[in-house]
Design a protein around this nucleic acid. Structure first.
Length: 501
RNA sequence: GGAGUGAUAGCUCAAUGGUAGAGCAGCUGCCUUUUAAGCAGUUGGUUCCGGGUUCGAGUCCCGGUCACUUCACCA
């Protein structure tokens, strides 16, 4: 005991260490090396056949114990779910005595036969029970019942959000639905990869540490490389590197990776987040619209086997053709303002009228973005593509082939939330240089998120980039939508937290 | 960054400015098909941290920490 170090020893931990010592005295290894498992809890239950004797071996963590003297019931959870175990003293002998020293939280292995109890629960009648890992910390003990209407009711649920995020392992042990969300997250990303791979798009990896950050409007994290003695930035987007690869002759590439933006945190923002970017040569944004639409539909069908989702009270159908909404036309319709011809003064006046905070909007492009966000965005429930963005808001997008002052860009929206951003990529290096220079002017005006000029990227464009369609999808937000989660922290396993103390 | 709300036993929560409590978990008994098992008994507290007011502070005041909600910014 004296050589045991816990930062917060209490009676419960002391008792568990005592049990750990007693078990060792009984010749039990409290930290076993392996255990052969024949199947998982929920599979055992669904494969039960009362006419066939089935012997199984399962392993899992004890979440409940009901001791009745010379017999006991315990529930264990494994990766798929939970199952009840029945143990009898006269059948287990010394193993039963050891079981008396087991606690909620311990990991155990069981061999036994499947049966149905008097009260109807399919369980495992153990003829062997071994301790696999002794849990030295008390695990919280929520309890649940199924009420008359068949709904699950949980008592003393582990709900403290701070503890759940900081100690996600406990959250995963105790809240089944949390694990389900992350399994879905994995499946969604797999389905996207499969779709992209099957479409002949090559998965690549580009630098996270960049001497010049670019590809998005955001403030970066800065770090320092000791040997080179230079600052390096954690990437805010993959865009400029992926386009260099298109210049290099790959004609379709994608990357799924973490981006980092040094900005505020809230329900929809984590400092590091997962982004998918796709670039396909010889295609334009019209082609990309069909591509996104089909990819999302494919994900819905393979992971959820449906295209209609109930999201915040709205029935959203990812199976229908996505409607196109023109930013310029819709704003003209609602506000009477023609973005293409309006003067700066007139734009400012209208922005104020609709409640745009002009102290934050440093540029014309930002004002237009804000105005759209307030006036039109909340109206877009069904999946749709917003098109016809003014050139000011999109420094990396190609000018529209027929409409002046407009770029070939679209953003996908679902129930008023943006889920993707794409353009016909700007590949004219002279135009690109002018756009960067215009961004520099915004930066001088105080726009900290304005993009910086990347000379090597311009040089790459000068060698010639084929016409290219590009796409970005914020994966975390897409997963929030599809799994009906209200906070980005509920789709990120270990969200960024401020350290305690 | 602003505003609001909150932090009490391992977990979930109570407590007019007046002895910090309950349920679960734990511990001691009894109990060989229970299931929020049951019955009897019992342990457990830096009330987030630091000041202040008061005869007396979990409670009121000030400062701080962390979280959540919301606004701003952004994806």
């Amino acid at each position: 005991m004296d050589n045991v170090h816990f930062d917060d020893v209490n009676e419960l931990i002391k008792r568990r260490i005592e049990e750990y010592n007693l078990l060792k005295e009984n010749g039990v290894n409290p930290f076993e090396y392996s255990f052969n498992v024949s199947g998982y809890s929920t599979d055992i239950i669904s494969n039960y056949d009362e006419n066939v004797e089935q012997n199984v071996s399962v392993a899992g963590r004890i979440i409940a114990i009901r001791r009745m003297g010379k017999a006991s019931f315990t529930h264990i959870v494994d990766v798929k779910g939970k199952i009840q175990i029945y143990l009898k003293a006269d059948e287990l002998g010394s193993q039963y005595d050891n079981f008396k020293l087991f606690d909620i939280g311990d990991l155990i292995g069981i061999e036994g036969k499947v049966f149905r109890t008097k009260t109807g629960e399919i369980s495992v009648h153990a003829y062997k029970v071994v301790l696999l890992t002794k849990s030295l910390r008390p695990v919280p003990t929520p309890k649940e019942i199924i009420d008359e209407s068949g709904n699950k009711v949980v008592f003393d649920q582990f709900t403290d959000k701070e503890l759940r995020y900081r100690q996600r392992y406990l959250d995963l042990i105790l809240n089944r639905e949390v694990k389900d969300v992350f399994v879905l997250r994995s499946k969604i990303i797999s389905a996207m990869r499969k779709y992209l791979d099957d479409a002949g798009v090559l998965e690549v990896e580009t630098p996270v540490l960049q001497p010049i950050y670019g590809g998005a409007s955001a403030r970066p994290f800065v770090t320092h490389h000791n040997a080179l003695d230079i600052p390096l930035y954690l990437r805010i987007a993959d865009e400029l590197y992926l386009k260099r690869l298109i210049v290099g002759g790959f004609d379709a590439v994608y990357e799924i990776s973490k981006d980092f933006r040094n900005e505020g945190m809230d329900r929809t923002h984590n400092p590091e987040f997962t982004m998918l970017e796709v670039y396909v040569a010889y295609k334009d944004y019209e082609w990309m619209m069909d591509f996104v639409e089909n990819m999302i539909k494919h994900v819905c069908l393979t992971v959820f086997e449906k295209t209609v989702f109930e999201i915040e009270g709205h029935s959203v159908d990812f199976g229908q053709k996505w409607q196109k909404v023109s930013m310029v036309d819709s704003l003209k319709e609602k506000t009477g303002l023609d973005l293409l011809t309006v003067s700066d003064e007139e734009l400012l006046k209208t922005a104020i009228k609709y409640g745009v905070d002009i102290s934050q909007a440093k540029s014309r492009g930002k004002l237009i973005d804000e105005l759209f966000g307030i006036v039109i965005q909340p109206l877009l429930f069904q999946p749709c593509f917003v098109v016809d963005y003014p050139v000011e808001t999109s420094p990396l997008a190609k000018k529209h082939r027929s409409k002046t002052g407009i770029v070939e860009r679209f953003e996908g929206f679902v129930i008023g939330r943006e889920i993707c951003n794409a353009f016909s990529e700007l590949n004219d290096p002279i135009d690109q240089r002018e756009r960067f220079e215009s961004q520099l002017k915004d930066k001088e005006k105080g726009d900290e998120e304005a993009q910086v000029l990347d000379e090597d990227f311009l040089r790459a464009l000068e060698y010639g980039m084929p016409p290219t369609a590009g796409l970005g999808i914020g994966i975390d937000r897409l997963i929030m939508l599809l799994t009906n989660q209200n906070s980005i922290r509920d789709v990120i396993l270990f969200p960024t937290m401020k350290p305690v103390k």
